[in-house]
Design a protein around this nucleic acid. Sequence first.
DNA 1: ACTACATTTAGATGATTTCCTAAATATCTA
DNA 2: TAGATATTTAGGAAATCATCTAAATGTAGT
Lengths: 87, 87
Amino acid sequence: MNDAFKALADPTRRQILMLLKERDMSAGEIADHFSMKKPSISHHLNILKQAQLIIDERQGQNIIYSLNTSVMQEALGWFLHMIQKNN
Amino acid sequence: MNDAFKALADPTRRQILMLLKERDMSAGEIADHFSMKKPSISHHLNILKQAQLIIDERQGQNIIYSLNTSVMQEALGWFLHMIQKNN
DNA sequence: ACTACATTTAGATGATTTCCTAAATATCTA
DNA sequence: TAGATATTTAGGAAATCATCTAAATGTAGT
């Protein structure tokens, strides 16, 4: 969970997750949504992957990224717990 | 929200929030739960405050910190949205 | 095998973050 | 007002992070 929280701290990475919520995308397609260079996006994708927030799968020349919601569900649980009144 | 996500990226700060979930505490009481020096804890408290995750109120010599859940509710909403299937 | 395309890896740099010590500020009590 | 306690502010060092360019890797098509 610590890796996930750290990954979520960066706005570019949250934006990437939001893009992937709409549909799966290749690294290149993702990069096209930002002004940042491709290696930087690749780096962000790697951090998201380490945090298990996304999954990658090669399809020919492309690497397709998709959301993995299980860790986000854990985080959701954390927030629910924190918001809960007492005990 | 960006400040909140950044604040939540640090494990010490998440631990502080968890302590404050149990009960309101003074800066000193909070610091007693960590091996870190007090100025460092004060710095973390300040970041949490900037992010509006906590509220402070002076009571005599002490400054009492307490949770402010409204921003965490926003974050909860963000996760709910991200987890949601489509649309 | 060669070239083109998609992506990552490596290495460098500047910005930010975390933590420390020392000093300042605020409050209480005698 | 002087001394004690609680907390913050200031300033600095070391670690981490975000980004870039250049080079390497993997895949496809001719």
